[in-house]
């Protein structure tokens, strides 16, 4: 009779591509069955997690050429969110969004009301409205000379922002 541990390992095996499971699945189950008899509960979890991670890595290796580019794009967006620390935004029912964010160049805040920017600060210095330029999905904060300091992608659906991190100031 199959044990719970063997069933867990089978779940981990699902992370591998089907072709790999067809080739090695029964052999891996056999090896795991022998090993699981020697392992404690935590080591069993490690064994299952390892199979899941190894299978996932293999799936990424077998994706076609277009997928790495797509994944790289997703990773860049995710990295931008992580690096820019956009976790401090909050949304209230009146349609007002206050963003309080940080990137390597410094801190900035942005207040958006019904999709339009109404206030912003750079390093705690309030900016005049003339330095905020909004299109349907982008808000640009301009430098005094008119060049773009920050181009912020604004997602109306989720009420979130994303931007390329600025380089640290010298």
């Amino acid at each position: 009779m199959r044990t719970l541990r063997e069933s867990l390992f089978d779940l981990g095996l699902l992370a591998f591509p089907r072709s790999f499971r067809t080739e090695y699945g029964s052999e891996m189950r056999e090896v795991a069955r022998e090993r699981l008899g020697e392992l404690g509960f935590l080591e069993t979890i490690t064994e299952v997690a390892d199979a899941t991670i190894a299978g996932t890595r293999m799936r990424f290796e077998h994706m076609n050429a277009a997928m790495p580019a797509l994944l790289a794009g997703v990773a860049m967006i995710a990295t931008a969110f992580a690096m820019n620390d956009a976790s401090f935004w909050r949304r209230d029912p009146a349609g007002r969004l206050d963003f309080n964010a940080q990137d390597p160049a410094g801190a900035f805040t942005l207040t958006v009301l019904n999709g339009k920017p109404i206030a912003a600060t750079l390093d705690r210095v309030p900016l005049s409205l003339s330095r905020l330029v909004a299109t349907s999905d982008t808000i640009r904060i301009l430098k005094p000379d008119g060049a773009v300091e920050l181009a912020i992608a604004f997602d109306r659906e989720t009420g979130s922002i994303a931007w390329a991190p600025r380089a640290p100031r010298r």
């Binding site: 022998e34 899941t52 190894a54």
Partner: peptide, 26 residues
């Protein structure tokens, strides 16, 4: 075979390496 390879690695590394099945087969 797979299981013996895992055990052999554990032995020759004095238990420093304890590879798991998924990683070994990959």
């Amino acid at each position: 075979h797979g299981y013996a390879i895992i055990k052999e690695i554990e032995t020759i590394t004095d238990g420093e390496m304890r590879p798991n099945t998924g990683s070994v087969y990959l």
